[in-house]
Design a protein around this nucleic acid. Structure first.
Length: 500
RNA sequence: GGCCCCAUCGUCUAGCGGCCUAGGAUGUCACCCUUUCAAGGUGAAGACACGGGUUCGAACCCCGUUGGGGCUACCA
């Protein structure tokens, strides 16, 4: 079996718009996108909004936003059009109704007039008898004439598939090979609902055919309905696409798939975001996110784990997809995000940092930001880290640290104050306030005071930045300037109460 | 419960019958570098779920057990 058919490669991502994009959905989209790009094919976005009860007007917008953030451009779909449109299923009802009708006319499906009450009762009875629940095929034996008559009378009905009563359905999955399902275990699934909307099962087959999808990559959740779809393709007599059921991502502890309803937690008990928008807000880079997702269930081929999507496209194939489900390795995401942050040019990083700082309420002086960026670049795991590490550069008024934070290991208040005074005096004398000059002066001073560099520099750091953890001291003073630096040292010295 | 899928370090993975006394990454720990925090460098601990086969030889093939996961709607 080969993973490329003779047909042009066309893949699709077909989410239902029920909110932001689920992180697992993004990976499914990514794999489809990578495959299409690798084969110079087309990647299609199709919206599966056939559930009116779950309709959400803003969801499509949010979904599109997440996909655009990730950079997964679709060649056909909402907002971009295409020759196989419309790409929103609620606008394609005529197709589904036509093909449902075709199935009924060709004895592949039938109208079911059973009420939901009766269905419920049948189920309860079956369960009571310890039988597996399911429809009892009551309407399957209705004559075509009676069926048509009742429909004509305006009686409400659904269309159900006429599942073969015996035999087996042998399905082919690219990742798992052959699987055999007993037809006797299959239900007469509803294809067309009473509101005239199709179920997923009908819509997916009709659309994948009409849109000439060559490869269907979807999550394994769909595997149980795979035989139904397989039979549907056969019933229509259409050429099937290649199917590949992707493993799902489980909670970090490996228990259960990641879901919005039961938010996963990491080993520290911290809640892990499920939606792409949460990751956007948390300061993750789209390139890191995609790199991360590409490493779950697929691998680059050699031992590299940090790569760009351009590189991934070159190598992407279905043969290296791992059929096993995987826990969500959050620590790797943080690591990869740091790696990608370091891969960025300082200018590019600064460009991405600006909105983060602004969102935190800072007014950003771009010139300062450009100087600060290289200092934070190596220290960040996420873009939002900049606020904590270097936010003080952009604060209107300086917030000094509490005086008790000033003394370093084995230092008392007097010693600390004296060090601050001496440092201010020494730095004040400098005509050359360069980083090197500052460093030399302070190293000399530390020796004179009998302090270690660590002690003296620590005191100065807290005085200058108001923080115990910050950007490097001399670089920071360089950016702040001599006047501001001296002012802060003086302020810190005065804040220390010393009994004489 | 039924049906189906899956099974290598804590985690993500390489491995597709001999190159495996199982490789990489992450995380953890130690050391080095060092003005804090990082980053970087070096090193350590850490896995073929179990039981049967097949074979000269099995992490790799087959069967069973166990474990995990998915599905079980007029939701997708």
């Amino acid at each position: 079996m080969t993973d490329a058919t003779s047909r042009p490669v066309r893949t699709r991502f077909a989410p239902s718009p029920t909110g932001s994009l689920h992180i697992g959905g993004l990976r499914t989209a990514l794999f489809n996108w990578l495959f299409a790009r690798h084969h110079n094919g087309s990647f299609i976005l199709r919206i599966e909004d056939t559930d009116q009860e779950r309709y959400d007007a803003t969801a499509l917008q949010t979904l599109v936003e997440a996909l655009r953030w990730a950079g997964l451009q679709w060649d056909e779909g909402p907002e971009v059009g295409g020759q196989f449109g419309p790409y929103v299923q609620s606008e394609r009802l005529a197709h589904y109704q036509q093909w449902a009708r075709w199935l009924v006319d060709n004895d592949k499906a039938y109208r079911c007039f059973c009420s939901s009450e009766r269905l419920k009762q049948v189920n309860e009875e079956k369960v009571a008898r310890k039988e597996p629940p399911g429809y009892d095929r009551f309407c399957r034996s209705l004559s075509p004439a009676e069926s048509a008559q009742r429909a004509a009378n305006g009686e409400s009905y659904v269309v159900r598939f006429k599942t073969p009563l015996d035999g087996q359905t042998v399905v082919q999955d690219w990742i798992r090979g052959e699987s055999v399902f007993e037809n006797a275990n299959q239900q007469d699934a509803v294809l067309l609902k009473s509101d005239g909307f199709p179920t997923y099962h009908l819509a997916v087959v009709v659309d994948d055919h009409l849109m000439q999808i060559s490869h269907v990559m979807r999550a394994v959740e769909w595997f149980p309905s795979f035989p139904l779809h397989w039979q549907l393709w056969d019933a229509f007599g259409w050429e099937k696409p290649v199917f590949a059921h992707l493993p799902v991502m489980l909670n970090p502890n490996g228990k259960g798939k990641i879901s919005k309803r039961h938010p996963p937690v990491d080993k520290h008990g911290k809640t892990i975001p499920v939606m792409v928008h949460d990751y956007m807000r948390a300061g993750y880079l789209p390139e890191a996110m995609l790199n991360f997702l590409a490493n779950i269930g697929w691998n680059f081929g050699d031992e590299r784990e940090v790569f760009t999507m351009v590189e991934a496209i070159e190598r992407f194939d279905l043969t290296r997809i791992n059929p096993a489900n995987s826990a969500f390795p959050t620590e790797k995401l943080d690591w990869l995000n740091g790696e990608h942050i370091r891969l960025l040019s300082p200018e590019e990083l600064a460009r991405r940092l600006k909105p983060v700082l602004e969102a935190a309420g800072f007014e950003v002086n771009v010139e300062v930001l450009l100087k600060v960026t290289p200092l934070v670049q190596v220290r960040m795991k996420s873009l939002s880290d900049v606020v904590e590490i270097a936010g003080f550069f952009f604060r209107e008024t300086f917030i000094p640290a509490a005086p008790e934070k000033l003394p370093q290991k084995k230092m008392d208040a007097r010693q600390t104050r004296d060090a601050l005074v001496a440092a201010a005096a020494r730095l004040g004398e400098l005509t050359d306030f360069s980083i090197e000059a500052q460093k030399l002066a302070m190293e000399t001073l530390a020796q004179e005071l009998g302090l270690s560099n660590s002690q003296l520099f620590g005191v100065l750091r807290v005085a200058i930045t108001g923080q115990q953890v910050s950007t490097p001291l001399f670089e920071t003073m360089d950016i702040l300037g001599k006047d501001t630096s001296l002012e802060r040292l003086k302020l810190a010295g005065e804040s220390l109460l010393v009994q004489s």
